[in-house]
Design a protein around this nucleic acid. Structure first.
Lengths: 127, 127
DNA sequence: GTGTTATCAGTAATAATTACTAAAATTAAT
DNA sequence: ATTAATTTTAGTAATTATTACTGATAACAC
């Protein structure tokens, strides 16, 4: 656990947003101005493999990171990309429904809601 | 409806896979060797806005296109990226559960299963 | 047919991510 | 602690998917 890795973890744990790698980079840069973006990417990957955090692959063009390593669902703003937790109980049985109906070995599932956050709900503008 | 747009639609309708824009490009190129990738991207976008096809934003690094414009769920191979339909009934009530529990205006949801396709289930190799 | 508009092919530009490399730092073994 | 082996880092370059731009072409309206 290097200093860089430790600080990346600390900074991510201080927010309940779901920042992209670039946003984590900007956060960490305040404490380690010489850190490089590649280091942030690599350590976020390592930390998620260690089970300390979670890497999110949601809709949109970029991956996000969640300080909470426990599987849960999210809602994402279609306009601005903001992501929040979706307070829905896990669908523990849903994978059983698929069992036998697919040729795949089922490993997990992901449920993501789409919508508009409060700010973007107010503003008309083009979607 | 230009010739290019028509042929893109025809080719996509001939497969039950869920090709990426680049794969559609390769398919269409057999009939229109001079078509450009930008044209494929633009027309896939237009066709999905018209409701003729569906643009999929699943996990992984690329978007995929589905000849079926009706909302349904998918399963994706974590190793090779193959995508198939997941024969699960739509969760029509799930958005109601979230209503009142989130500050977002809910517009839709996406459910995606992850697993290994038959080929990748056989091969050990690194995941 | 002529003019207007949309679309095309080809190419360049973006943006997120990954790969590479030599230097620095951490760890392990004496 | 000192040296040797290993890992990690900063910085940069390369990749990849996608979008934007542009002058030429084709579709459409009159």
């Amino acid at each position: 656990m290097t200093q860089q890795r430790q600080i990346i973890l600390e900074e991510l744990r201080q927010v309940n947003s779901h920042p992209s790698a670039d946003e984590v980079y900007e956060m960490v840069r305040k404490r380690l101005p010489r850190i490089s973006l590649g280091t942030v990417y690599r350590n976020l990957e390592i930390l998620s493999e260690l089970g300390e955090i979670q890497k999110l692959e949601l809709g949109g063009d970029l991956k996000r990171f969640d300080r909470n390593p426990i599987k849960h669902y999210h809602i994402r703003c279609m306009r601005c990309g903001r992501v929040d937790d979706a307070p829905i109980a896990p669908l523990n049985q849903i994978e059983n429904e698929l069992y036998g109906a697919t040729v795949y070995t089922i490993i997990g599932h992901r449920l993501e809601f789409e919508g508009l956050c409060p700010q973007c709900s107010k503003t008309p503008g083009k979607s």
